[in-house]
Amino acid sequence: MPAIEILGLTKDYAVGFWRKRMRRSLDNLSLEVNEGEIFGFLGPNGAGKTTCMKLLMGLIFPTAGTARILGRPIDDVAMHRDIGYLPEQPYFYDYLTARELLDYYARFSGFSAAERRARVTRVLERVGLASAADVQLRKFSKGMLQRAGIAQAIIHDPRIVFLDEPMSGLDPIGRREVRDIILDLKTQGRTVFFSTHILSDAEMLCDRVAVLHLGKLRGVGSPGKIVSVEVHAMEILFEPAEGHSLPPGLAQRAMPVGGRYRLELPEAALYSAFDEIRACNARILSVSPVRQTLEDYFLGLVERAPQATPPVEAGTR
């Protein structure tokens, strides 16, 4: 039995103030997510990722299609015992402290008071909010709210965790911590279904990804296969030695950035550039591949598939 089974899910929204027209935000999406996998739901802003998550959570109702989670229909609320959900930009009762909030959510899983206390303490620790446990949420930063949101999504050890843009609003350390949490969940045999518009997050974590664009599914498979990230070029960041200027050949090609230089070049030319930099005693600060961004990737998708038209007009009402 697949963990998540999406069958032709479609959602039209009414748009426009006076003359309401219907716009298709999710178009006949079919998808299967297996139990135990980390599944990345990729797409640029407006692709329909959040819409899909909200449909799966029963927050909005599909125009057409159905879905099953753990073999149960999505309107079966009892199934929610086994799932956790982090909404995009979560917002909570701001008159509660983090501890009270999590205790509140844990009550819906029917834990005893002692069990709740233990779980709340553990999960606050897990998401790095232990020191803010007794602070009212109105004083939380965006990143802290995100952590609280992850905490409530995993406090009851759900079998499937739905995370809508879990890394957004987090600093690099926070993103790293969230990645660790996701990988932990996988180790515990949980299924993680998370959406992102950031390609590297997906690459680093996912067993499989689905790519969504303008409400339509564009491909499913392993990240390497689906989003073939071609490394076009390398980038060297270097700093000239004190009192030295760059030889003209290098100065011409490199771009000055705040006293340092950035040099972009094909991979094959990397080692000769190293030699040049060494020759003038400059210090290399970093060498990194220049990757296609997800936006580039999607631009490519649209160009390669011109038959795919922008938002489908599903007629007027």
Binding site: K54, M57, G58, L59, V77, A78, M79, H80, R81, I83, G84, Y85, L86, P87, Q89, P90, Y91, F92, Y93, Y105, F108, S109, G149, Q152, A153, F162
Partner: peptide, 12 residues
């Protein structure tokens, strides 16, 4: 305020 998003992901 969308506080219902998380609430309705619970079995209620």
């Amino acid at each position: 305020k969308r506080t219902l998003y998380t609430l309705f992901s619970k079995p209620i």
